[in-house]
């Protein structure tokens, strides 16, 4: 994937990847009652990681981000599934969710919902799936 002369790409990547990561986390947290959520957040994170792969090559990025993306898929699915069956154990319908308001340090009073945990599962699954697909194709000789 690495090219001979890609100074511009590398320089901008350091900046853009950073912004992308930040915005993807914002989108992920914004979800549930505003536009955003685990799916779109996950896609944007994988876009950021992919950009790094394109600029710095497979070897370098695999070294700084030693993540097994294939393993992220079952982990994400487990989190999503556990949050949805959690309600079954307390006698509520499957997939039921709840929320509450908590005083957090620095942030002040914030709404926390169990839907966020479900979204975290979606987020990890999306990152795992999209990067597994892209890296498998990229590695194919």
């Amino acid at each position: 994937m690495i090219k001979e002369n890609d100074l511009i790409l590398r320089t901008t990547t350091t900046l853009i990847a950073f912004i992308l990561f930040g915005f993807s986390i914002y989108l992920f947290l914004a979800g549930h009652s505003a536009p955003g959520g685990g799916f779109i957040g996950g896609l944007m994170t994988s876009a950021a990681i992919l950009l790094m792969y394109m600029a710095y090559g497979l070897k370098a990025v695999s070294k700084i981000l030693p993540i097994n993306y294939q393993l992220l898929i079952p982990i994400g699915l487990t989190i999503a599934l556990l949050t949805s069956i959690g309600s079954v154990f307390i006698g509520e319908p499957f997939l039921n969710q709840t929320f509450g308001y908590f005083d957090l340090p620095i942030l002040g009073e914030k709404e926390l919902a169990t839907a966020l945990l479900f979204d975290l599962g979606v987020y990890l699954t999306v990152v795992g799936v999209s990067l597994t697909i892209i890296l498998t194709i990229a590695n194919d000789q």
Partner: peptide
């Protein structure tokens, strides 16, 4: 809640599939 019975035939194989993906 008895109506949750309806989701078990979908959820159990899904848990099984995810669990077996780990190893």
């Amino acid at each position: 809640m008895i109506s949750n019975l309806a989701v078990l035939p979908i959820v159990i194989p899904m848990i099984a599939g995810i669990l077996l993906a780990f190893f």
